[in-house]
Amino acid sequence: MEALTRNLNSTILRVGSVLAGLVFWHFLATTVINDTTFLVSPIVVVATGYEMLFVNGELYPHLFASSWIFFYGFLLAIVAGVPLGFLMALSQIVRDYVNPWMTTLYTTPRIAFAPVLLLWFGVGGGAKVSIVFLGCVFPILINSYYGMRVVNREYVELARSFRLNSRALFFKILLPASVPFVLAGVRLAIGRGLTGVAIAEWFGATEGLGYLIFFAGQTLNIPTLFVGVAVFAALGIFGFEVVRRVEAYATPWKTDARGS
């Protein structure tokens, strides 16, 4: 009962916070700034979004283009990042080989790679996917590595005490113990991947949400610009929610304590 009340209070606060923000935005746009080439009310944004989604359908090609790029880049990052991270955790040699590259590439702003990737892969999907990949792969790689490195020593002793072989040690102890870290990395990768999409589409794309925002900005089409931003935000929230559900399913021992 107490928990229920707390949840309810928490929900009220969250919804209230969002509503207050929207109201503030509305008044800022209509009374303080009052210049539609600068800022428009959220009501106008919603109306424009409605039109682009349900009336003229202008949004869909952009949405699909961006989604595919994100999906491929993100998937590749998981497929490459998780195993490499695990290998780094398990092998000093792999760690020594990968570490300098990881540090260099991770700390270099990705936007600096964009022109050269476009040069190499052309303006087709390859360059964009690789920009997204570069954004996603490091949080996944680093978290997978770290997650497997910090597995509780007690669990490893337990495995030795029960004479588990190295295969069983990996699959029964190291892998499940790393799952929460990997998923945390995947969660972080969503935001960085979406940033990657925006960056990729600013450079020489002809469709996509990033292109939509860029083009709307150039032509002072503020409502469309905000629709683009809102769709990015919605994709991010959607991605977070998907990962949260995967977490709840894959790490049931954590869901009780975590809340949402």
Partner: peptide, 14 residues
């Protein structure tokens, strides 16, 4: 040949 009962239960949480 040996069963070890640890000081902390060291159960696997998953």
């Amino acid at each position: 040949l040996m069963g070890f009962v640890f000081q902390g239960a060291s159960l696997l949480p998953w």
